[in-house]
Design a protein around this nucleic acid. Structure first.
Lengths: 140, 140
DNA sequence: CAGAATCCACAACGATACTG
DNA sequence: CAGTATCGTTGTGGATTCTG
């Protein structure tokens, strides 16, 4: 920590243990993480999955539940989730068309991940908020 | 499953158990997940964190390691990570400026999450790829 | 080396209108 | 009800140039 003010350019650092963390194919295959992150990272997918985790939902029900989402984005989101095999779509040939969305097994398994994510967020949201505040007031 | 072709509009569904998954404040506070996802969801943050998980890195080292990332994006990514308290930045007053980046404790704790993410990705990447292939060839 | 600044291309998203 | 189609806005990322 106290490096003083001198720092040789050839300081290879005594590196304790280089943990692998992901260890896929070099240089950076990133495994299939990008695929998952593409779905997790967009604005609505997580919220839709969370809502569907509680059970089967119709299109309109989903839209009401997520609130803030437009028909367009709900359609796109649910289509991508379906394409990735996370959500199943069932159409009923009723007079006003009726469609039901449901998590597949794969989708439910993703639920565990989201839970872990939510847990970490809750555990550290204060720390993150504090760090941001400190940063912003230090040099905003 | 076999609903045949009849489906009354008033089908409340026998819903087994509505799992909460996140259970924050209604309607959809999404806890602090969005904050984490904003950092996890962008194109480079995860890769940078993964690289830093192996130890201290200089700017150029990071750029070489991540490969594909531009100076601009590396700067932005590392700044955001620093703002969120996930990465610490140390400047050495040498002739050619030298800067070292390192994960903070908070950053290291995020590593566990990324590990979980990578694990899930590896476990299901085949399933996802298969679902996409099926979808694309069914109606691309 | 480490970055700030500028410009530009494109993708994501939102609002609106229309259809089966 | 459950979408599709179109348009305009915004945000994100890449390439390039310049500085301490």
């Amino acid at each position: 920590m106290s490096a003083g003010h001198m720092a040789v350019t050839t300081g290879p650092a005594p590196g304790p243990e280089p943990e692998p963390v992901v260890s896929c194919a070099p240089p950076h295959d990133d495994c299939g993480i990008r695929d998952v992150l593409d779905r997790l990272g967009d604005k609505w997918s997580v919220l839709v999955v969370v809502e569907l985790a509680s059970g089967v939902r119709r299109f309109k029900e989903l839209q009401r539940a997520v609130d803030g989402i437009s028909q367009r984005m709900l359609t796109l989101t649910v289509r991508r989730l379906e394409r990735d095999g996370l959500v199943s779509r069932t159409v009923y040939p009723t007079v006003p068309t009726q469609v039901e969305y449901e998590l597949t097994e794969l989708g439910h398994s993703l639920t565990h991940l989201i839970k872990a994510l939510a847990g970490w967020s809750l555990d550290h949201r204060a720390a993150i908020a504090g760090a941001r505040r400190a940063w912003d007031e230090a040099a905003g």
